[in-house]
């Protein structure tokens, strides 16, 4: 190869890089999350020797199924530029209500739709406040947080055991492939993530979600249905929280009104680590899935090390910090180039 072909190749490469960046610059944070995930797994494997086992990896999904579901809903909201602080409390409310209804003898076929509807209703309330009454998402979802948390304690002040077969089935069933296994809750979580990703990428609704996050005013002038979209994302987040309540109840075999305190923060952190910008407009549902897995892996690593669980949040906090500083640096560089 002579010098000129080398330059030519180099030029082609740089042109391709440029085209790629022009098209997919917003994917970079998600790639970073994937990279971190891989490094975490490999690092843990080297350190512990027995980390990357099928059993461990299967448990990772099982343990974090409810977080995945919450993160999918949160991604919709954050991409519009909003935020939903209510998810942890709504999950607790639907979880305890589910346990309570089941304990009083209702059939799961009635209870499950009912609690999902309850989640949707709180989401609707938040969405309506945000869209039609100009309440900041932060405050509106804060009202949702208080409401759901209080209602959870109204349902019951103590935890309620779940005996219902079909709900427990979600958790106890193990579909196996060799040493790998997956539970119905895991399937549920993955399906939610896939459906979410599909909706965001391939439907007009999904693109409107991005449009609203990019510039609400412009989206409206373009004739997009901004109002319905903004309400809908909170309803979606509420539905996801309702579903997460079911999954968590199945997972722990009980409803507990103190469940999920601070979970909204974990979810937001996971979504941001997965590459979604809190300013709205960019983000990926599958990125959030990775974000949750990173979160879960850190938790597992810490319990492997036998360290204080307090470290989980410190590390997640630091990781969040790293992410936002890097994102900030990228933005600054882009501005300087202009």
């Amino acid at each position: 190869m002579n010098a000129s072909t080398v330059t030519a190749t180099r030029e082609t490469v740089s042109r391709h890089t440029r085209t790629f960046l022009d098209r997919h610059a917003s994917l970079m944070p998600t790639f970073a999350a994937v990279l971190i995930f891989a490094v975490l797994l490999i690092g843990a494997q080297i350190h512990f020797g027995t980390f990357l086992t099928p059993l461990n990896m299967s448990a990772l999904l099982l343990d974090n199924a409810y977080l995945v579901i919450l993160a999918v809903g949160m991604t919709f909201v954050i991409v519009t530029g909003g935020i939903d602080l209510s998810v942890g409390s709504v999950m607790a409310l639907t979880g305890i209500w589910c346990a309570d209804l089941l304990a009083s003898g209702h059939s799961a076929a009635v209870v499950v739709p009912l609690i999902i509807l309850a989640g949707a209703a709180i989401g609707l309330l938040i969405g309506v406040l945000v869209q039609y009454f100009d309440v900041q998402p932060f405050i509106a979802s804060l009202a949702g947080l208080f409401l759901a948390r209080g209602l959870a304690f109204v349902v019951s002040l103590d935890s309620i055991r779940v005996e219902n077969e079909s709900v427990l089935w979600l958790q106890t069933t193990r579909w196996r492939l060799g040493e790998w296994y997956i539970t119905p809750t895991g399937v549920l979580a993955l399906s939610v993530a896939l459906i979410g990703a599909f909706v965001m990428q391939f439907t007009r609704f999904g693109r409107t979600v991005y449009a609203v996050g990019g510039n609400e005013q412009s989206a409206r002038l373009m004739g997009l249905d901004v109002a319905r979209t903004k309400v809908a994302v909170y309803v979606i987040s509420g539905v996801c929280a309702g579903l997460a309540g079911l999954v968590l109840t199945a997972y722990s075999g009980a409803g507990y009104p103190r469940n999920g305190i601070g979970t909204e923060l974990d979810v937001i952190a996971a979504v941001v680590i997965g590459g979604t910008l809190l300013t709205g407009g960019t983000g990926y549902v599958l990125g959030s899935l990775i974000g949750v897995l990173v979160f879960g892996t850190i938790k597992t690593v810490i319990s492997f090390m036998g360290a204080e669980q307090a470290w989980t949040r410190i590390i997640i906090g630091l990781m969040l910090l790293m992410f936002i500083v890097v994102q900030r640096a990228i933005v600054v560089r882009a501005e300087r180039r202009r």
Partner: peptide, 30 residues
């Protein structure tokens, strides 16, 4: 974080909100 690095306040303070309690737990040994 906010004034010098120009990071969105809600995100910048989220870091400490997440990590702070962990630090407090470490100080009191849990």
């Amino acid at each position: 974080l906010v004034a010098v690095l120009d990071i969105q306040p809600i995100v910048a303070t989220l870091v400490l909100m997440l990590a702070g309690r962990g630090v407090a737990l470490l100080i009191t040994d849990g």
